[in-house]
C-alpha cells in the first residue's frame, strides 16, 4: 500500500474524527453552555466537509500514482 492509499485512509479516519468531535462539542455545549464548544463543534463539522473535499482533490491530483 503506497502513501497515497494510506493518506486516503488517513483522511477518512480524520474526517470521521472531525465529525465525531463536532457532535461531541455540540453536545458539550448543550450540557455546559460553553460558547467556545459550539464554535469549535461547528468548525469541526465544517472541517469534516473540507477534509472530504480535500480527499477528492487529492485523488484527482495523484491520479497517476499507484495504490500499491
Amino acid at each position: 500500500m503506497s502513501l497515497k492509499a494510506f493518506h486516503i485512509i488517513f483522511v477518512i479516519f480524520s474526517s470521521l474524527t472531525a465529525l465525531g468531535f463536532g457532535f461531541w462539542a455540540i453536545r458539550h455545549y448543550r450540557l455546559h453552555c460553553e460558547l467556545a464548544a459550539l464554535i469549535v463543534g461547528i468548525a469541526s463539522l465544517v472541517g469534516c466537509a473540507m477534509l472530504i473535499i480535500y480527499g477528492k482533490w487529492f485523488l484527482r491530483k495523484l491520479r497517476g500514482v499507484s495504490y500499491l
Binding site: 502513501l3 494510506f6 493518506h7 488517513f10 479516519f13 480524520s14 474524527t17 465525531g20 468531535f21 461531541w24
Partner: peptide, 20 residues
Amino acid sequence: GLYWHFVDLVWIFLFPILYL
C-alpha cells in the same frame, strides 16, 4: 510518510478515548 501517517492515526484514536 507512511510512518508519519501511522503515528498521526494513533493520535486520532488516542484523542477521543482519552479526552472525550
